[in-house]
């Protein structure tokens, strides 16, 4: 049960949030021009990183805003949070 700092509301218990998986997978602007393989890649394939992962979270039981979290999936340590559309504060 970690604590996530919502960029809009501040520190909250993890149970207030919904996880949204890997971040920065941009929905293709022109899906019809993708091959089946490329579309499958967007749709299903994930890095599923063990280590520092960029991911999406939603403050579902709070402000309902989506934002990004940089979290180490090997120990659940959160390195940074940032709003949608912002550049990651760390690489």
């Amino acid at each position: 049960m970690f604590i996530i700092t919502c960029p809009f509301c501040g520190e909250r218990d993890q149970s207030e949030f919904a996880a949204g998986g890997e971040a920065h997978i941009v929905r293709p602007k022109q899906p019809t021009e993708l091959s089946d393989d490329e579309w499958a890649d967007f749709l299903f394939m994930r890095k599923n990183i063990k280590g520092v992962q960029f991911e999406r979270w939603n403050h579902a039981h709070g402000c309902r805003k989506w934002f990004n979290v940089i979290r180490d999936t090997s120990n659940d340590k959160i390195h940074a949070v940032y709003k949608m559309g912002e550049k990651p504060p760390i690489k």
Binding site: V26, R56, N58, W66, M84
Partner: peptide, 13 residues
Amino acid sequence: LSKLEDYLQTEWP
């Protein structure tokens, strides 16, 4: 609702 909010906030802001 969650799905619509997700698209609106992340894909089509």
